[in-house]
Nucleic acid binder design. Structure first.
Lengths: 339, 339
DNA sequence: ATTTCGAACGTAATCGATTTCGATACTTGT
DNA sequence: ACAAGTATCGAAATCGATTACGTTCGAAAT
């Protein structure tokens, strides 16, 4: 590999001079610098990121912490899209990304230690249990972090607008005449809390009363759980006319249960999901769902993190809300009078 | 951060001694070593991967090269599952992974240069254009590589068994009485070639003749393209009784077209896909498809690469074939006599 | 002619860890 | 008692790049 020493010998200057020339310092004669850069190019010189990181204490490497209980990991489309977007924005700014995890080989470390071990300049934290002590330790450490879909005090975060998302969905189905709206939600996370609160708030704003039995608990990304919840809703004396699901996977699980029971969609039951996975608009019927803008979330998270890393003085914690978009599929029936 | 120097001061020994004690060298007194390790633990010492990489020329970091023309990148479930699996196997062995790409920040580099810049010990290459000169440069460089679904001479590769996969599918539908089998394939890649060859070979082994018009070209992961191809097949005077699609996304696009034309599945037309995406078994009807074992592919690719890295002497190029599994859904009708 | 100053470049320390080659003291054998 | 061997540890170089500080030299100022 061509090093700075090789260039210095070839140019009859010191390594210091080469380094300065390559980095555009002002105390090098313009011609000399040009010559050095020329030779460097000819010799195919590339800086050694490792050496540079060691000396500068900056690795130009950001960590990404994704943990999924179901261990499907990147299997979640939402997160793999966020990851892709983070990657692109990071690369655009000269950063590479590395996954952060526990227990690398025989080394037993927590997230913070791993990030330190790899000299990460910052970490993007998503899809984890935010009550995990190791996560809290990382976020409260000297390493800059940006969280997704969760806010820590005095820290930056990028959030999918679950409040508006749920409100939009509710208002949409309300606009189609639905009053008996059921909501099957995911496990109790901050996302679920936000959606649940928004669901109730919006309903009350619209002046509709939701009986307790219309709110069912299930699990994210679990077609079986949502199927069971759906069955419970169908068993009610006073059935809802519309069911909202926690995500598109659960949504499909619910649709299966409905069809199995001979309930046709959307004639006998209107349904909607959340996420807007790619397939949602390919399937027939097209799913009515709320598309989260994963691409924007990843991009903004990366931008925020780079701000903290590169301009720590001017930085103040921010929470950035990323709006989504309702995808009107064919799963909501218009039950207004006269339609 | 606690360094080896801090420990050496605390223990009144040299840095050399600390390093040796921590790495279990034999020329350190057992008690001294134990004490040093004890102190290291108390002080919360963690090795600095950067410094170690610089000195040893080994970063314990492997690169992953994934490029997707449609830029959905990790959006492909197949690849994100492979990635997840690579990650897990790498971490189990003390390696982290880094994405390799071109043009990091203002640095204009090719894949090889990027991998060198980051001191990657090896690179896993998947989902790229294997005729790209930059890819070829990387594979033929001094950096160990393992390719997925493509073989370079004298290099290791991990392959999804497309030959058996296609053969299994054809034999399966043949067993259900189908003789007029159409095949819509993806763009001309080595994967497509393998499947196409296997399709023709298996059909001829079974003694069935496939008219040219039954083989249609489409694009991977493109519901519209497969929809159009499906329409062309339906326009034939002598329609096939069964259509095989290049992947599950295309499969669904094809199903939509069929339903739009009033062709019911599987009564009027039998269909099958490829990949076995998560949703394939959640949807109703359940998709008949060939599940590629992405988890095994990622794991084996990582294992192969680590072999090359850690035991270069004993290594010989290998091609590892990973079998998949036919998922019998509900989209193939049994049209044998008497059924 | 002497001082001053800035441009241009080099010296050497530094980042943290590893490793070669000694160096020292202590054993053992004869 | 002396040579030889062994156990244990340290000095210093090294990986590649950066940078504070020093040096040199010519030009401008007094």
């Amino acid at each position: 590999m061509v090093t700075i020493t090789d260039i210095s010998r070839r140019c009859n200057v010191s390594r210091a001079t080469v380094s300065k020339a390559l980095n555009g310092h002002s105390d090098i004669n313009a011609e000399t610098a040009a010559h050095i850069r020329q030779v460097a190019k000819e010799m195919g010189y590339l800086p050694n990121a490792t050496a540079r990181a060691l000396k500068l204490g900056r690795s130009h490497n950001i960590g990404v912490l994704f943990v999924d209980k179901t261990s499907s990991g990147l299997g979640h489309e939402y997160f793999s899209q966020i990851l892709e977007s983070v990657k692109q924005e990071a690369e655009r700014n000269g950063y590479d990304i590395t996954f952060i995890s526990r227990d690398i080989g025989t080394l037993h470390m927590d997230y913070y230690e791993h990030a330190k071990y790899r000299n990460c300049d910052g970490v993007i934290v998503a899809s984890v249990d935010f009550t995990d002590p190791d996560v809290i330790k990382l976020v409260n450490s000297d390493i800059p972090t940006v969280t997704l879909d969760y806010v820590f005090d005095s820290h930056s975060a990028v959030l999918s607008d679950n409040v508006s998302g749920m409100a939009d969905l509710v208002r949409f189905v309300y606009g189609r005449g639905h009053r008996k709206i059921a909501f099957i939600h995911g496990e109790p996370t901050s996302v679920t809390q936000k959606r649940l609160a928004s669901f109730h708030k919006t309903c009350s704003e619209l002046g509709i009363v939701i009986p307790e039995e219309y709110v069912e608990a299930a699990t994210f990304h679990d077609p079986k759980a949502s199927g069971l919840a759906t069955r419970r809703l169908l068993a009610l004396k006073d059935r809802p006319t519309c069911i909202l699901y926690p995500d598109d996977f659960s949504f499909i699980g619910g649709m299966n249960e409905l069809e199995k029971q001979g309930v046709s969609i959307p004639k006998d039951m209107s349904v909607a999901g959340y996420d807007g996975i790619l397939l949602s608009q390919v399937l027939r019927p097209r799913l009515t769902t709320y598309r989260q803008d994963a691409e924007a979330m990843g991009r903004e998270a990366a931008r925020q993190l780079l701000e903290i890393i590169e301009r720590p003085k001017e930085w103040i914690p921010q929470q950035i809300m990323i709006p989504g978009r309702l995808l009107e599929g064919d799963t909501i029936r218009d039950i207004r009078q006269g339609f």
